[in-house]
Amino acid sequence: MPDGDMVHRHLGHFYQKTYKILCEGVLATEDCARDLLSRLGRDLKQTAKWPLHLSKKISDLLSQKIGPLEFANNDEAARSGHQIDDLINLADCPNREKELISRASKTVLNELRHGGEMDTCNFQLAIFKQYIREKYEADFKERIPLSREHHNGVSHGELMRRLEALEPYLNFGIHQFAQTAIKNQNLDNLRLPRQVRREINLDEDLLAG
């Protein structure tokens, strides 16, 4: 394409272990999800300070236009898009984070524009949650190489199925991360969701192969 594209060849070092765990398929789905969330949380602590701050500013901007009809108006939505860009451009943070918070905000704006239901009292939650999801997809899910065969001989299709199985846990974890960050207005205490205790099956033969 014009002037060349940069395509990411490998998964970043930060998520290599999670990738291997997923490929090996030894851990239970919930444990895999917890490992992934734990890494995502550490990544957010390093990089999401400005996006959290920006999500508040963008939320304040959208809250001023609270009526749903305003977002259905294309001129108003276009104006909001420009205003979001202006806010983001002023921030002094890496371009990658700016682009991700921009994607997140524009996705939320698009939902509003098409009459999507959203808690209009808490746009920040919607935006920051979407930012975390964008980050997860950009840095992990959609950065997994598109090779036919992965670590431990797992096929790409099988790996994608395993990733899909994590979704309910990830959604819950991302929601919790976003809620905590917004409540504290910082990323210091992002906790993993409480682990569901498995019931002990007294009839289970622990020695069985």
């Binding site: 394409m1 014009p2 060349g4 594209d5 682009e99 840095d139 899910k141 950065r143």
Partner: peptide, 18 residues
């Protein structure tokens, strides 16, 4: 297609595509 130059995957962010 080349002018709009949409990202191929979500891992392509911002100026990864010109």
């Amino acid at each position: 297609i080349g002018a709009i130059n949409l990202p191929y995957r979500k891992s392509a962010v911002g100026l990864d595509h010109s």
